[in-house]
Deep mutational scan, measured.
Amino acid sequence: EKIKSDFFELLSNHHLDSQSRWSKVKDKVESDPRYKAVDSSSMREDLFKQYIEKIAKNLDSE
């Protein structure tokens, strides 16, 4: 859970929106230790998708 929250924090530093693509974001964040803390690339992508869904819901509710 800490790894997930750290990863979300990392993503939040990059001002993403619901149109952001993992392939582009990954290049910007892959040197960060919070990125490396997530064991697998599929898990990183899953967390990215969860984060994008979360910010999309937040935008819808505003």
Rank of each mutant, 00 (worst) to 15 (best):
K54S: 14
K28Y: 09
S61C: 11
L10D: 01
M43D: 08
P33T: 06
S31R: 12
E62P: 15
W22E: 02
I52K: 10
A56C: 11
D17L: 02
Y35A: 09
H15E: 11
S20C: 08
M43R: 09
S5I: 11
K49L: 07
R34G: 01
E30S: 14
N13V: 08
D32M: 00
E30I: 05
I3S: 06
K57V: 10
D39L: 11
D60I: 06
F48G: 03
E30N: 13
E30H: 08
S20H: 05
N58Q: 09
N13W: 04
S31D: 15
D27L: 12
S42V: 12
S41M: 15
K26W: 04
L16Y: 05
E9C: 05
E1Y: 15
N13S: 15
D60E: 09
D46F: 12
I3Y: 04
L10W: 00
S40Y: 03
F8W: 10
E53R: 11
S18E: 15
D17C: 06
D39R: 14
S42G: 10
A37K: 07
S40R: 05
L16M: 10
V29K: 00
D39K: 13
K4A: 07
K36V: 10
S12C: 06
I52V: 13
E1C: 10
E45Y: 08
K4D: 02
S40M: 04
S40F: 02
K24Q: 15
E62G: 13
P33H: 07
Y35W: 05
N58I: 07
V25R: 02
N13G: 09
L59C: 15
V25D: 02
V29R: 00
E62D: 14
K49R: 11
F7P: 00
P33N: 05
E53K: 13
K24S: 15
E62C: 08
H14R: 05
S23G: 08
Q50M: 14
W22K: 02
V29D: 01
E30D: 14
S20I: 05
Y51E: 02
F48Q: 03
D32Y: 00
N58G: 10
S41F: 06
R21E: 12
R44L: 03
Y51K: 02
K26M: 07
E9I: 04
S20Y: 03
Y51F: 05
K26A: 07
A37R: 06
I3W: 02
S41E: 15
D32T: 00
E53P: 03
I52W: 09
Q50C: 09
S41A: 15
V29N: 00
R34A: 07
K24P: 04
I55D: 09
